[in-house]
Amino acid sequence: MKFQGVLTKMNTENKDVVQYYLATDRHVLNLNQFLNKSIAISFDGYECLSCKKEKKIYRQGHCYDCFYDQPYTADWVMKPELSKAHLGIEERNLAYEENAQLQPHIVYLALSSNVKVGVTRKSQIPTRWIDQGAKEAIVFVEVPNRYLAGITEVALKAYVSDKTSWQKMLKNNVEQQDLVKIKQELKPYLPEETKQYYVGDDHILKLKYPVEKYPEKVGSLNLDKDPFYEGVLKGIKAQYLIFEDGKVFNVRANEGYKVQIEITS
């Protein structure tokens, strides 16, 4: 069984076990069905997700020119506190920025490698948590725009991390934490502008991933250095494929890469 196409991040569906789907030019693959099967990945070149040209990928699936031109790769995406659409100020494309920034956003706590604070659009729950490999997550505040979420995250990351250790997350080396207790302890540190948006509901979403075996050591597969790889798929977590030999492949980090994928057994 062989497939080919340009990589984009895996789509997910939260069921009893998270379901993962990889879309190619002609197919949508449910990757869960390939656990314990041998998978070969061959690198065939690049295709920018924006201009579609066969140019080397710079970041986030885009060539250098598109990364510094498109509105969805601007600084406010990674740093929500830089959002300015609520002030009517354009960075690259005001219509796009208003649509993306002026909608409900969530500030949350998630347990992935450790407890972390993060920001996402409300419409991206629980997708964002799955993409980070969170075992558990809880909503902290719900605000009407991205800027307010950003300044909340900045305030809280003085007390809790805003980063995930991908190695610990993939090894499932995660110490259990009480998210409700941590949420209550952090509440006094909310900025004045967002205290009114505190969410009192302490529901914790728990996520289960399709992993047969977690690796003891992890090594990242780099298609630029290793254009061919074959291994037995033992799990999928966050946006990573986990193989029996400890190699892991970050699908999202390889967006814009043209590949052939062959299921050999």
Rank of each mutant, 00 (worst) to 15 (best):
Leu82Gly: 04
Lys84Asp: 00
Ala85Leu: 07
His86Glu: 04
Leu87Gln: 15
Gly88Trp: 00
Gly88Phe: 01
Glu90Arg: 04
Glu90Trp: 09
Glu91Thr: 10
Ala95Gln: 09
Tyr96Thr: 08
Glu98Met: 08
Asn99Cys: 06
Gln101Leu: 05
Gln101Met: 06
Leu102Ile: 01
Leu102Trp: 00
Gln103Ala: 15
Gln103Phe: 00
His105Leu: 08
Val107Asn: 02
Leu109Gly: 10
Leu109Gln: 11
Leu109Ile: 03
Leu111Ser: 02
Ser112Tyr: 03
Ser112Trp: 00
Ser112Leu: 05
Ser113Lys: 12
Val115Cys: 13
Val115Trp: 03
Lys116Tyr: 03
Val117Leu: 08
Val119Met: 09
Val119Gln: 05
Val119Asp: 07
Thr120Gln: 13
Thr120Asp: 06
Thr120Arg: 11
Arg121Ala: 14
Ser123Arg: 10
Gln124Trp: 02
Ile125Arg: 10
Ile125Tyr: 08
Ile125Asn: 04
Ile125Gly: 08
Pro126Lys: 13
Trp129Cys: 12
Trp129Arg: 14
Asp131Gln: 06
Gln132Pro: 11
Gly133Ala: 08
Ala134Thr: 04
Lys135Met: 00
Lys135Asp: 05
Glu136Trp: 01
Ala137Gln: 10
Ile138Asp: 15
Val139Glu: 13
Val139Ala: 11
Val141Gln: 11
Val141His: 12
Glu142Asp: 06
Val143Arg: 15
Val143His: 12
Val143Gly: 15
Asn145Gly: 08
Tyr147Arg: 09
Tyr147Leu: 02
Tyr147Met: 10
Leu148Phe: 05
Ala149Asn: 10
Gly150Asp: 02
Thr152Phe: 04
Thr152Cys: 14
Thr152Asn: 14
Thr152Ser: 13
Val154Trp: 07
Val154Phe: 01
Leu156Val: 03
Lys157Thr: 05
Lys157Ala: 03
Lys157Asp: 00
Ala158Asp: 14
Ala158Thr: 09
Ala158Val: 01
Tyr159Lys: 09
Tyr159Gln: 12
Val160Met: 07
Ser161Lys: 13
Ser161Cys: 12
Ser161Val: 09
Asp162Asn: 07
Thr164Pro: 10
Trp166Ser: 15
Trp166Gln: 15
Lys168Phe: 00
Met169Leu: 10
Met169Gly: 04
Leu170Asp: 01
Lys171Glu: 01
Gln176Asn: 11
Lys181Cys: 05
Ile182Val: 09
Ile182Asn: 13
Lys183Arg: 02
Gln184Met: 10
Lys187Val: 08
Lys187Tyr: 12
Pro188Gln: 06
Pro188His: 05
Tyr189Trp: 10
Leu190Asp: 11
Glu192Ile: 07
Glu193Val: 09
Lys195Asp: 03
Gln196Phe: 02
Tyr197Trp: 02
Tyr197Met: 02
Gly200Met: 09
His203Val: 04
Lys206Ile: 08
Leu207Pro: 12
Tyr209Val: 12
Pro210Leu: 05
Val211Glu: 05
Val211Pro: 13
Val211Ile: 10
Glu212Tyr: 00
Glu212Gly: 01
Glu212Pro: 01
Lys213Cys: 05
Lys213Ile: 04
Lys213Ser: 12
Tyr214Ala: 14
Tyr214Gly: 14
Glu216Phe: 01
Glu216Arg: 06
Lys217Pro: 00
Lys217Glu: 12
Val218Cys: 08
Val218Glu: 10
Gly219Ala: 14
Ser220Lys: 12
Asp224Pro: 01
Asp224Asn: 15
Asp224Val: 00
Asp224Gln: 13
Lys225Gln: 15
Asp226Trp: 04
